[in-house]
Amino acid sequence: MRKLTCIVCPNGCSIHVNQDVDPWNIVGNLCPRGIDFARKELTNPTRTVCSTVRTSFATVRRLPVRTRGEVPLASVRSVMSEISRLVVDREARTGDTLIENVAGTGVAVVATADLADLIEWEDCDGRPICSGD
């Protein structure tokens, strides 16, 4: 009997899976997504990875990013390594693809904020820096 916490939504249902029967007996979920989660978690667990990447802009050193979709749990570290090597030097916008296929997972890494916003809002003196400065 395996016990899992479903991470699909904030409910965090406590799901019990009996793998000795076929099909597996899965209980504890409040919605059908929990069943899918339990099956996947025990065969091929995946996660989204949310992080930041370096930029070449002195006043905004980091841009938040995420994987567009989930990657295998086992590849999270290599995904992080590849993200760490990236330096964004253009004004990326929310949703822009920064890495097409990260660490061979087939999943893209996208920006989750508009760099221009961060530059404009993050200047130490509150002065908006126009692009091109």
Binding site: T52, S81, S84
Partner: peptide, 9 residues
Amino acid sequence: ETKTVRRGS
């Protein structure tokens, strides 16, 4: 700095 520290896996 972040992105510079690598721990052994």
